[in-house]
Amino acid sequence: MSLEGEDRKAYILSMLDSMGKVKVTLLSEELQVTPETIRRYLEELEKEKRIKRVFPLSFIKDYYQSNLVASGWLFTVNYAVSIIPFVILMNWLYYKTGRNILVAIAFHITANLFNEIFMTDPHSKVIQTLLLTGLVIFLLIKERNLFFNQPVSPTA
């Protein structure tokens, strides 16, 4: 298929309209251009506000990540940032219970269950992240030996 600039963009838009998403490799083969050319067209279409590119999993309708992207950048960033205090807290539980993995698993399941039961709003998840971060900062200060000191191993 031999199309030029604006015609290629129109083709890309028609493919998006019919399929809901496009793959760079497939478009480059169909339009007989390099993948870089397709990426450039996609960037131009995004700058023209004719399309909105999204990160993986965010294109699946009604998937959690797609709802976050639709809600705005703050909630998308919060999703990624919230993992940090959560993981630190889970590690603290793991080490404070003598490396009992079941406690960490129970904490993880309970946290996810409560988020599902209460259908936590993205705004309250931002507050939840702030509270967890505060708790983690407190634990990092109070338990600094656990987090920052290397254990001394006996020499043989």
Rank of each mutant, 00 (worst) to 15 (best):
Y63L: 07
R144A: 06
L68S: 03
V136S: 00
Y95E: 10
R8P: 02
N149H: 15
S71A: 15
L93D: 04
M19D: 14
H108K: 06
L57A: 12
V81G: 01
T155S: 12
G134F: 03
S14G: 05
E30Y: 10
E116T: 15
V87C: 12
N78D: 08
H108V: 14
M1I: 01
F118I: 00
R99P: 07
K47G: 13
A156W: 08
K21R: 14
H108A: 15
M90P: 07
E116F: 15
D121M: 06
D7R: 04
F138M: 08
G5A: 11
V69F: 11
F147Q: 05
R99G: 14
L16E: 06
F138A: 10
L57T: 09
G98E: 02
I127P: 15
Q150K: 15
I84G: 04
Y94C: 06
D62Q: 08
S2R: 11
T129G: 03
L31Y: 00
N112L: 10
L68W: 01
F147S: 02
T120I: 12
V126N: 10
L130I: 12
N67E: 14
I105K: 08
L113H: 02
L74M: 13
A10V: 03
I105Q: 07
S71L: 06
E46L: 09
I141V: 15
F86Y: 08
V24N: 11
L26P: 06
V126A: 10
F107E: 03
P151I: 04
I38N: 03
P35E: 04
K52P: 00
N145W: 12
V77G: 04
G98N: 00
V103Y: 06
S82V: 11
L42G: 09
R53G: 13
Y95Q: 09
P154S: 14
H108P: 09
Y64K: 08
I83M: 14
F138G: 08
L146F: 10
E4W: 00
T155A: 09
F147T: 06
F118E: 06
A156T: 11
T120E: 13
F86T: 06
P154T: 15
S82L: 12
S18W: 03
K23T: 11
G72H: 07
S66P: 03
S2H: 07
A104D: 09
K52T: 10
K49E: 14
S66K: 01
R40G: 04
L16H: 08
